[in-house]
Write a protein that binds this DNA or RNA. Structure first.
Lengths: 242, 242
DNA sequence: CGACGCGTTGAGCAGACTCAATCACAGTGG
DNA sequence: CCACTGTGATTGAGTCTGCTCAACGCGTCG
């Protein structure tokens, strides 16, 4: 991690927070939650997994610092990054109702997630109607977000996909209080490419092209957005992912 | 609708059922549900919408007969079919937590869905812990299914996607008690293509190719699976979509 | 019967992929 | 301290899959 990176965004922090704004816009009173659910703080080194597909489903996780990727895998070894998770995102909800987790979740950098044992969460839901609603809403938002990406993958050419992705990342950083115009990508080109259903060379070329068009300025993982409207135009109107 | 079609699968029926097996494998006691929620049976002609994006979110729907497609739309007119819904599938859950529905749901043929007013559902959840769990599980299963398709779209070539799609359709018909080897596709090539992130000509060619390989036999919308293992091999191992 | 929507097929094109070389950088060990 | 190494990113050249444009056939419905 360079000095620059920490000055810009998303340095893994351990600052506690009482009222967490979830990814779907809702708010969760952490203190109330902790009164009902024993929360364990789990640190993960870059590359380490929170859980792997097939492992027993025992808990949900709340991202507290850093970032993670979720990976879907096929029997024959095919693999696909299906999303990136940052502070405030709920992890593991897709496996509710199963005996085992259905995907891998892996830290992109040194990160921290809070473990919420599922049996305790279920019990707490009876006491905290808030919590039940939060989880349901988070799941629904998850479906909408995934579908929004399906729309993007199905209708946009490579360069547009990359532009849309950058706008989404920028929006998420803005939502977390960081700059939307200057940030460090936490994932490799390979992971970006997998998520966007492209090859990493294609992603690299698209970024170079956007750089040449002076819409962004990019050097390895550091990105500056020079022309938001230009980026929006290329991405095909608004975007913004529900 | 030809006479043949009705002999093979998915003729819209109005036969009532007491214990509904949901798409995620769970079962729902319809009679118990009806004691708490006023259910209205809604018939839809082919092409008619159950709801449209932007319309006020007021109810969930349970597909009773026929089939529907869900469509995501962008501000600039881009459109993407994100899934197909059949008997036992829950519709509308993706919009929970919003004021308005986030997508379109349109009947592919003459169909029927049961309307479950959401406020009543919410109230019933307090009385029927079963129901709350069912909805949560259905949402989680939805996320897994969407991600499974993202994996497919990101890693399979056109012909393989079509093969995987056919296997999925076959499995769903089998699950409903129809033949997995002989069925009528309810959607147009255009809809299939949109869902698979391809052009309809490409889908048509892929089907012709699978026909020439004697893996299937296809004439317009009527499909016979001649070699399941061959189809599985082309689709890239198992498939099956959670 | 004619019109229209849907599906199939062909020919040519182009965008994304494959293969490969090079460069930048971080970590390691002499 | 610097050479060495390995990973990640960039760039180039050539290929090929899937797209575009277009024509035609089939079936349905007014």
């Amino acid at each position: 991690m360079t000095a620059l990176a920490s000055a810009v965004n998303a340095t893994p922090t351990a600052k506690p927070y009482a009222l967490l704004t979830l990814a779907d816009g809702g708010q969760l009173d952490i203190e109330a939650l902790r009164r009902h659910v024993p929360v364990r703080r789990c640190k993960h080194a870059a590359g380490q997994g929170v859980y792997r597909a097939g492992q027993a489903f025992e808990a949900l996780y709340l991202v507290h610092a850093g970032s993670y990727k979720t990976c879907e895998l096929a029997d024959d070894g095919r693999e696909q990054v299906t999303g990136f998770r940052m502070r405030g995102d709920l992890i593991g909800a897709e496996s509710i109702g199963l005996k085992n987790y259905s995907c891998d979740v892996i830290a992109l950098e040194d990160s921290e997630a809070w473990e919420l044992p599922y049996p305790a969460v279920l019990r707490a839901c009876l006491q905290l109607p808030e919590l039940q609603a939060r989880i349901t809403h988070a799941l629904a938002a998850e479906v909408r977000r995934d579908r929004s990406w399906m729309l993007m993958l199905g209708t946009l050419a490579a360069e547009r996909r990359v532009a849309a992705f950058l706008l989404d990342v920028a929006a998420r950083y803005a939502h977390m209080g960081y700059s939307a115009k200057h940030f460090i990508l936490r994932m490799s080109r390979i992971d970006m490419a997998s998520f966007l259903a492209l090859k990493h060379e294609t992603v690299s070329r698209a970024l170079s092209r956007l750089n040449d068009l002076s819409v962004i300025s990019v050097q390895r993982r550091e990105v500056r957005v020079l022309d938001v409207d230009g980026l929006r135009t290329i991405a095909g109107s608004g975007m913004a992912v529900s």
